[in-house]
Every structure is written in C-alpha cells, then in structure tokens.
Nucleic acid binder design. Structure first.
Lengths: 136, 136
DNA sequence: TTAGATGCAAAGTGTTTGCAGCCTG
DNA sequence: CAGGCTGCAAACACTTTGCATCTAA
C-alpha cells in the first residue's frame, strides 16, 4: 500500500483511501476493467464507495499519466496501468482484453507527417485462444 | 449513385434512398464522422430522415463489411469506408481524424500468440500539423 | 482552516429497442 | 403481397455535473 501512497504523493494528489484502493485494484488486476467493474468489485469491501468517486479518481489518475484509458469496444472506457509499451487484443466472444507485447518500428516514423505524436494505441480484435479451443 | 446501388445489391441489401445517401456521404467525405454528424448533414437535404434510420443503415453496412466503425475518442463511434489498410491519427485539439498510411510488418505475427485475428486497428493521438502551426 | 475530495441525485450524451406504417422486390 | 425498412418515442448504458458535506494537509 505504501507503493500507492508514494505514487499519489509524487503527483501532488491528496491521499484518500478511495484513490488508494482504485490504484491497487488496477495494479493487481490486469483485466482492463471498465469504471463500473472497478466500482462493483470494490463496493463489496467498501460499501460506502460511490461511483462518482471512482470516476473522479480515474480522471485524476489519468490526468497525471498514472493510468491510461483505452476505448476498444463500443461506448465504454477501460482502464489500465501501462507497464511498458504494449497493444491490446480484444476477444469478440468473451470480451476479455489481453496485452500484446509488440513493437512496431514503423510507428516512430509518424512525426514525419508533421503531426505531434502523444499517444500510440493499437488494438486487434478477434477470437482468443481459449474461446477457439471451446469451439464456436 | 449507380456505384452505391451496385454495392448494396452485391450484399443483398434492399436499395433505399436513405442507405444510398449514407453510403455516398461516407464515400465522398473522408472525415470519419459520428452517426450524429452524418445525420445532421444529411438532414439538411433530406428533412424526413430519422436518426434511427442512420443507425440502422450503419449497422447494416457494417455487418456486410462495407464500412467499419472505429472507436478512438471517448464514447462515440465513427464510421469509415476503408480504402486499403490504414491507421488513424486523432488530433486532441481540433478533433479531426486523418488517415495514416502505414504498414506494420510485426502485426502479422499476432496469430503466433494463438489468437484468431479478425481486425487490426491502430490509432495515434496528438496535435495535428495545422493546430501546431496555429500555436497553442 | 481551507482547498480539494466524497457521494448522492439529477442531467447529459450516444445508442438501441418497440412498434405501427411504408416501400422494395 | 411479404418481409424488410423507416421513423417516432421511449428506454438504455455510460459518464458528467451540481451541490452539500467531509477530510487531508
């Protein structure tokens, strides 16, 4: 937990128990959850937690670059602590998102077009190994 | 217009004036519009057009692979007639989306992970050339 | 002590659904 | 003529906002 206190301090964010548990949740679960998933899971052990606070925490953490929001399927945002450069694979069947460790050298050429690059996202959609095994 | 009739026929879709104008709009405007943008623009010359119909048309066209939906910023879907393989550059300032003609050879290695790849999307976020010129 | 965070409820935004009537094939 | 399509309104899902209360620093 010290770890998360440190992260918040480093970013001049006030330390609140809510922010800590959201941060911990994202760090310990690499499931790219939606805001609602985070809320429901944390609600169990923190009954007083409100959804607004989850959204507030996510916005704050995102602003400071601690977490990133990805938008991969439809109208919901998913959150992620970026551990190095990676892309995402989204399974159309089970909805799971797996990280894909991939480096695309060409992508660095982007700025040749004259645009200033700030974020690079890649996502691949398909059917994951597990769902393939289970058959369709 | 013949062109669009042909496309619909080829995909066993009934030819309706609404579908034709949506298709034409997407083909002639490479602006990756949202459903609402399409609706508002077409409404001017087609006052009886309803938003539901725009959504219906988009879903139908998407199902047949004629258009693709991309999800790049927040909670809105954008539509696109894919003219060959390309990625998208989203300007955080003006919201414009430009196509980026890029090929990433590594991405083909995806299936080595054992997942079945069906769609590959890439998006880059930043500030576009024009907005950079205008200064911040 | 005070700027900022929480949490409730209400409002927004983008999309989907139910259904009666219309039109393409 | 039949099944699919249109278009209205109402329902939905996810996110944001307003505001009174609370809390970390």
């Amino acid at each position: 937990m010290e770890k998360y206190v440190k992260i918040l301090k480093k970013n001049d964010l006030k330390i609140t128990s809510q922010r800590l548990i959201v941060l911990q949740y994202l760090d310990e679960n690499c499931i790219h959850p939606t805001a609602d998933q985070i809320y429901s899971d944390l609600k169990i052990n923190n009954p007083s937690l409100s959804k607004t606070t989850v959204y507030n925490a996510l916005v704050a953490l995102q602003k400071h670059g601690i977490i990133q929001a990805i938008t991969i399927s439809g109208s919901e945002l998913r959150y992620d602590i970026p551990h190095g450069m990676h892309h995402h694979f989204y399974c159309k069947k089970c909805g799971k998102i797996v990280d894909i460790d991939i480096s695309c050298p060409n992508i660095k050429k982007m700025s040749e077009f004259g645009h200033k690059v700030e974020e690079i996202h890649g996502y691949i959609k398909g059917i994951c190994k597990e769902c393939l095994k289970k058959g369709s």
